[in-house]
């Protein structure tokens, strides 16, 4: 009798969960509210606000979207969250002041930048143990991993370098200088190029991965905005190899770059101090976090047009896509 009633409850719960997460979602970390805002992509509204640790920044889902990882920078922890319930399941050891991280394609190893410690920490999300700590430059921030999982990248903001990590040995095998204050790194989907943004340098540098040498440098120029305010930070690449969208910080614009020719095609006006961005599942929509204005701009990727602004918490920083379960 008792068992039967429990079963009923379980069934009931699963129904409740399915209903509450019917649509695709965007998860946004609000740096100065210690919360996450969950946006329903269909209605374009915030449907949930979840309290997390102090100063949440980096945010990413596991490959199967079963759990969410959040860097709670000032709590010195990576928090593991059940996206269905919003419950914090446990903390992972992360080293001090984790800012950004990247999940290895093995869905198990997290490479975490410890901003205050000049260290990249590698954590096993299953055993919840630190596997390795790698000395990198000062204020590590940008994190990337190659599609084949062989290379991880940390960029250091004050040392102005990209540090190339061999993920088999977790040792550095190259260090390349980039422009001032590198913020974000991404591999192209075919793994042949590594792109790195430099906030104060005002550039995005394209590296050839095989030789770790500079292949191209992209500059930005927005009419009516002083060059010093054009500060590339987060960026995302479309899987079809067509576009790269680059957030240009306090210039309040996102640049649209041709992934093949490196030419800037357009500049789209978004909210104030645009930081990071994420695509929805079919990459028809792009969501940007706008730190100062405290909102998210939705961009129509086909039309290259901002179509909506959604108010979230204070200083939205990171954003991650969750398909409906």
């Amino acid at each position: 009798m008792l068992i039967k009633s429990m079963k009923t409850t379980a069934v009931f719960m699963s129904i409740a969960i399915t209903t509450s997460a019917a649509a695709d979602e965007m998860w946004v970390s609000n740096e100065k509210d210690d919360t996450l805002s969950v946006i329903d992509i269909e209605t374009m509204e915030v449907v949930r606000t979840i309290e997390v640790g102090e100063r949440p920044r980096g945010i990413t889902f596991s490959r199967d979207h079963d759990v969410l990882y959040v860097c709670a920078s000032d709590s010195d922890a990576v928090q593991v969250i059940d996206p269905a319930t919003g419950e914090i399941l446990h903390d992972l050891p992360s080293g001090e002041d984790p800012e950004q991280f990247v999940l290895h394609p093995d869905n198990r190893r997290l490479y975490i930048a410890n901003e205050d410690d000049a260290i990249t920490t590698v954590v096993d999300t299953e055993t919840r143990r630190v596997i390795e700590q790698i000395n990198v430059g000062i204020e590590p921030e940008g994190m990337a991993v190659s599609p084949d999982g062989k290379i991880a990248i940390t960029t250091s903001e004050t040392t102005n370098m990209a540090h190339w990590i061999d993920t088999e040995t977790d040792k550095l095998f190259a260090n390349t200088l980039v422009d001032q204050r590198p913020r974000h790194a991404e591999f192209t989907h075919d793994g042949s190029e590594l792109w790195i943004s430099a906030e104060i340098g005002g550039t995005v540098t394209v590296f050839d991965v095989a030789s770790q040498t500079e292949k191209a440098k992209i500059n930005f120029k927005i009419q009516g905005v002083h060059q010093d305010r054009v500060q590339p930070v987060g960026f995302e690449m479309t899987k079809d190899g067509r576009y790269v969208f680059v957030a240009l910080g306090p210039s309040n614009h996102v640049a649209v770059v041709d992934q093949k020719t490196y030419e800037v095609i357009d500049y789209l006006l978004v909210g104030r101090r645009v930081w990071h961005m994420a695509f929805n599942g079919d990459e028809s929509l792009l969501f940007t976090t706008n730190g100062v204005s405290g909102d998210v701009t939705v961009i129509d990727v086909e039309k290259l047009e901002p179509i909506k602004t959604i108010k979230v918490g204070r200083f939205p920083w990171g954003v991650a896509y969750r398909p409906s379960p």
């Binding site: 095998f173 260090n175 200088l177």
Partner: peptide, 16 residues
């Protein structure tokens, strides 16, 4: 992938 124990500078074109 070239693996080296030390961390040499791989120079970009400009620096070269």
């Amino acid at each position: 992938m070239p693996i080296m124990t030390l961390a040499p500078l791989i120079m970009g074109a400009t620096i070269a």
